[in-house]
C-alpha cells in the first residue's frame, strides 16, 4: 500500500516536471515577452529590464534557474503585478477558486447522484425524459452563456423584489457564491447524472440484485445497499479529476461574476506573457490535478474491496 502510494507520488512529480518543462519552452517560443508593451521601449530601458528579470540569459540558463527556484517552492515575482510574488498571488486567490470549486463539486455530485438515481428508477417515464433533456442542455450550452443568462435572471429577480436579494456579482458572502457555484457545477452535474444513470441501470440488471430480490430483501435495502452503493463507484472515480477541472476551469464564471479567483490570473497571465505567473499557476494546477487523481485512486481501494493496490 505504502509503496504503491510512493510510486504514484514519484510518477506524479515526474508528470509535473514534464508539464513545467513543456510549458516553459513553449512559453519562451511565443513571439514577444513580458516586457513588450504598447509604448515602445528604448534599447537601454529594455536591456535594463531584461537584466533586472534575468531575461538576458540564454533560455537554458533561465530554465535551470527556474528549476532551482522551483525545487525551493519559489516562483519569483510577477512581471505585471510588479511587486507581488507569484506565491502570494496563489495563496491569496486560490482559496477563492477552491471554495467556489468545492461548492460547485458538491452541487454537481449531490445533484448528479440524486438525478441519476431518479432517472434510472423512472426509466423511460416522464421524470427521466425531463431530466435527460435538461442534462443534454447542461452539457451542450457553454458556461459563459449559462453564466450570463443566470446573471440576467438575477437582475430581473432583484428588480421584481425591489431590492438586491442575491448579489449580481462580486464575492464575500455566501449569497455571492451560490449562483456562480451552481453555474460552475452545472455541466459536471449533467455529466454525472448521465454516468450515474447508466451505472444504475447496469447494476439493476445484475445477478446480485436479482438474488437479493428473490431472497425477499426489502426494496429500500436493495435500492440503497445493492444498487446505489455499487452504482456510485464510477461517479467517485471521475470526481477527483472533476474537482481539479472545476477548480481550475472557473475562469469564465470568475470573469462574469467578478470573482477574485486564481482562474483569472491563470488566463490573463497567458495573454500578458507574464512568465513567472504562467509557470507558477501551471505548475500549481498541474500538481493539484495529479494529486487529486492519486487521492482518488487510493480512496478507491477503500471503497471497493475488489481493487487491491499493489506495486
Amino acid at each position: 500500500m505504502l509503496s504503491y502510494i510512493l510510486k504514484r507520488l514519484v510518477q506524479g512529480i515526474l508528470t509535473v516536471w514534464f508539464i513545467a518543462t513543456a510549458t516553459f519552452f513553449a512559453m519562451h517560443n511565443v513571439p514577444g515577452d513580458p516586457l513588450t508593451n504598447d509604448r515602445a521601449m528604448t534599447d537601454t530601458t529594455r536591456a535594463n529590464l531584461e537584466a533586472k528579470y534575468g531575461l538576458d540569459q540564454p533560455t537554458t540558463t533561465q530554465y535551470l534557474i527556474f528549476l532551482r527556484n522551483l525545487s525551493q517552492g519559489d516562483f519569483g515575482i510577477s512581471f505585471v503585478q510588479e511587486n507581488r510574488e507569484v506565491n502570494d498571488i496563489i495563496r491569496e486567490h486560490f482559496p477563492v477558486s477552491a471554495i467556489l470549486g468545492v461548492l460547485a463539486v458538491i452541487f454537481a455530485a449531490t445533484g448528479g447522484v440524486l438525478f441519476g438515481a431518479l432517472t434510472a428508477l423512472y426509466r423511460n417515464r416522464l421524470p427521466d425524459y425531463l431530466i435527460m433533456f435538461l442534462v443534454i442542455m447542461g452539457i451542450s450550452v457553454p458556461s459563459f452563456v449559462v453564466a450570463a443568462l443566470s446573471q440576467l435572471s438575477l437582475v430581473a429577480f432583484n428588480n421584481l423584489i425591489g431590492f438586491t436579494v442575491i448579489p449580481v456579482a462580486g464575492w464575500g458572502t455566501i449569497l455571492h457564491m451560490l449562483v456562480p457555484a451552481m453555474v460552475l457545477g452545472l455541466s459536471t452535474m449533467a455529466y454525472l447524472t448521465r454516468l450515474m444513470r447508466s451505472s444504475m441501470l447496469e447494476v439493476t440488471s445484475s445477478d446480485y440484485v436479482r438474488t437479493a430480490k428473490s431472497k425477499g430483501v426489502p426494496a429500500t435495502r436493495i435500492f440503497t445497499r445493492h444498487q446505489l452503493r455499487n452504482a456510485i463507484l464510477p461517479v467517485i472515480t471521475v470526481l477527483g479529476p472533476a474537482i481539479a477541472a472545476i477548480t481550475t476551469g472557473g475562469f469564465v464564471v470568475e470573469l462574469v461574476f467578478a470573482i477574485p479567483g486564481l482562474g483569472r490570473y491563470f488566463v490573463e497571465a497567458v495573454q500578458q506573457l507574464d512568465y513567472t505567473v504562467i509557470m507558477g499557476t501551471t505548475v500549481f494546477y498541474g500538481a493539484f490535478l495529479v494529486f487529486m487523481v492519486i487521492i482518488v485512486d487510493v480512496l478507491y481501494g477503500f471503497i471497493d474491496p475488489r481493487v487491491r493496490l499493489e506495486t
Binding site: 446573471q151 437582475v155 428588480n159 438586491t164 449580481v168 456579482a169 462580486g170 470573469l255 461574476f257 467578478a258
Partner: peptide, 15 residues
C-alpha cells in the same frame, strides 16, 4: 471585471 455585460447587469441592479 472586464466583462462589459457583467458591468451592465451590476448597473441595472443598482450596484
Amino acid at each position: 471585471t472586464q466583462d462589459i455585460n457583467a458591468k451592465l447587469n451590476l448597473f441595472k441592479d443598482g450596484q
